[in-house]
């Protein structure tokens, strides 16, 4: 089985890029692959705990919890990007890690495929 590393940079609200990335992660995990997801810039919004689901917006907290529970998925937020947006460690969803950007580059090192999703 392979390892997929996905870098995401678009916000949770205002873009469907994260929605796509999480669905892609789910499909990969269901096929037996492992997935590392890195969220940087506005995408760090994904790591915020207490997200409330509205039908008008992509709601990803529950699918993320399910992915974390598989043990084949890990998600990490850029600590500086999160802090700059006021998302502190205490605000982080259970299961989500926070690291500096070199974590992402290290994940890419051992990945069979790297996808970059959303560049804004």
């Amino acid at each position: 089985m392979s390892k997929l590393t996905i870098g995401c940079f678009s916000s949770l609200v205002g873009s469907m890029s994260l929605d796509f990335a999480v669905k892609l992660s789910k499909a990969a995990v269901e096929k037996g692959h492992s997935v590392d997801m890195w969220v940087s810039g506005n995408a760090t919004m994904l790591s915020k705990k207490g997200q409330r689901a509205f039908k008008d917006y992509s709601a990803l907290a529950k699918p993320l919890e399910e992915l974390f529970a598989t043990g084949k998925f890990q998600a990490t937020a850029c600590e500086a990007c999160a802090e700059a947006r006021g998302y502190h460690k205490d605000d982080t969803m259970a299961g989500f890690k926070r690291h500096s950007m070199d974590w992402y580059l290290a994940s890419c090192f051992s990945a069979d495929k790297v996808l970059h999703i959303g560049g804004d």
């Binding site: 940079f9 810039g41 506005n42 500096s100 950007m101 070199d102 580059l105």
Partner: peptide
Amino acid sequence: KIESSRLAMTHAISSQTVEIYLEDGENV
């Protein structure tokens, strides 16, 4: 205009510390 070029630069520069996550002899 957007954050993309800044993120590209900061991620590229972070390659200087990636070794802490890698095995001996590995680098980017």
